[in-house]
Simulated scan of single mutants.
Amino acid sequence: MKNLILSTAALALTAGMALADGHSVVRMGTEGAYPPYNFLNDDGEIDGFEREVGDEMCARAELTCEWVTNEWDSIIPNLVSGNYDTIIAGMSITAERDEVIDFTQNYYPPTESAFVAASEDVDLEGGVIAAQTATIQAGYVTETGAALLEFPTPDETIAAVRAGEADAVFADKDFLAPIVEASGGELMFVGAGVPLGGGIGMGIRESDTELREKMDAAITSMKEDGTLNEMLVKWFGDDITLY
């Protein structure tokens, strides 16, 4: 659940959404580079927890939805300017973001961010910490006094630790967990977890009230019948926080 620091840059792009607001198709915007939340599979198609959740939300809301990808650091400006109609990209609900766009209720409960390093003997307060550009994790690192090393993609932050360019990486724990497990002991969690954000929600333009209400109703029904919990366990394991 990455936490975007809002960018002031915006691109003038065409719009087209659904519902009584005068649109036809809901375009679901995601990053496609943050497994298991969202990623491109071997066929080049958007996949992951959020693809499954988003498709189910659209089905329950009786909406026609299409998926598009957008780089993380411009994902909010391009929603506002009409490149797509929702953000479903591991985006935590924050007060800062809520000043620019609206959010549905969360479809992923609040969890921790964490540090991962190649050694237990690292200085998290005075060392070099890698984080993805334009995330609240990056903002948090600057407040600790550590030296922040930013990268455009999450994969580059992991590579920096492996290459010795950074002492640790700071990111969503649920993103880091499978990487640590697959590293065979090369990487490990260090320090204490840090709770950030208010869970992950779908970002929607402030003018698209009907769309937000339909997606909110879909999320509510998925929580009530257990479907959302089943998806959380499928993609994140039995230890994930459930509704």
Results as ranks from 00 to 15, higher is better:
E125F: 14
P109E: 05
P109C: 11
Q137S: 09
E224A: 15
A138W: 02
A147H: 11
N78G: 05
Y84L: 03
D42Q: 13
N41S: 13
A168Q: 04
A134F: 07
G29Y: 02
M57C: 11
A192V: 08
T241R: 08
V116M: 09
I179G: 01
A218Q: 09
K234P: 05
G199E: 07
N83R: 14
E224L: 05
V26K: 00
D155W: 11
W235G: 00
N83Y: 06
V128W: 07
I101A: 05
N70F: 01
T157P: 02
H23C: 14
M91E: 13
P154H: 11
V68D: 01
S24G: 11
A118C: 10
G139W: 02
F49K: 00
P178K: 05
D43E: 12
G139M: 04
E31Y: 02
G16C: 12
V80R: 13
G90C: 03
G201P: 05
C65Q: 08
I101Q: 02
D208V: 00
P36I: 05
E45T: 09
R205G: 04
A12V: 15
S74Q: 04
S81C: 10
Y140C: 02
G29F: 04
P110K: 06
A95L: 09
E96A: 15
A166C: 02
L63H: 00
T153G: 01
A177T: 15
G201S: 12
G237N: 07
Y107T: 02
E165V: 13
L211Y: 03
P35I: 06
T111H: 01
E45M: 10
D85C: 05
E45K: 15
A160Y: 06
C65I: 06
E50Q: 14
M222Q: 04
A118P: 01
P152I: 11
N106D: 14
L4P: 05
V190S: 08
N78T: 05
A118R: 14
P109D: 03
